[in-house]
């Protein structure tokens, strides 16, 4: 594990990113952009499912925002992995990093359950869980930089 993380840090691309003046902040900014799009669309979809937003029909809203959320998630994973790779060994030693990944996992399972279940009451409960989980991931992600 240690050697694997160490060799990730040694990749040419990652070593360039490590000391870069422009590239790293750009990757960081893309992570923030992705996270912003993801969390915003998740909150809007959840509010629609819960019934707080009623002015737009659920289908159109979901069709649009689910794409934004999935795209945002993909970009967040990619840019997050790049930042992780720069200091892989250190991040891997931080409980907070694993808490963040764990919460992402739970939020993913919650999404899976939501996609499979049809009962209205259940969908609302899962939307309620989602609206709490994703912003919590955001908060934990922000704290990572302060603990490292």
């Amino acid at each position: 594990m240690e050697t694997l993380l160490g060799s990730i840090e040694q990749l040419a691309l990652i070593k360039a990113l490590k000391t870069s003046f422009f590239a790293y902040p750009v990757v960081n900014a893309l992570h923030i952009l992705a996270v912003g799009g993801l969390v915003t669309s998740v909150i809007l979809m959840d509010l629609r499912v819960i019934g707080v937003i009623r002015s737009i029909d659920e289908q159109s809203l979901m069709r649009l925002l689910r794409r934004v959320a999935l795209g945002g998630f993909g970009l967040a994973v990619l840019t997050g992995a790049l930042m992780f790779a720069v200091r892989a060994t250190d991040y891997a030693g931080m409980p907070l990093f694993w808490i963040k990944l764990g919460l992402i996992g739970v939020a993913g399972l919650n999404f899976l359950a939501f996609s499979l279940l049809r009962a209205e009451g259940m969908r609302r409960i899962l939307a309620g869980v989602s609206i709490v989980l994703w912003p919590t991931v955001l908060l934990v992600g922000r704290f990572l930089g302060f603990v490292l």
């Binding site: 019934g51 707080v52 309620g128 490292l148």
Partner: peptide
């Protein structure tokens, strides 16, 4: 009813914020 729901949601969000120690290492 609607206001109440929004209020409850806001409270749930607040409660979900993990109480992390103030570890501000920037600046």
């Amino acid at each position: 009813m609607r206001r109440l729901r929004i209020l409850l949601l806001a409270m749930a969000l607040g409660a979900a914020m993990p109480v992390l120690p103030a570890l501000a290492h920037h600046g």
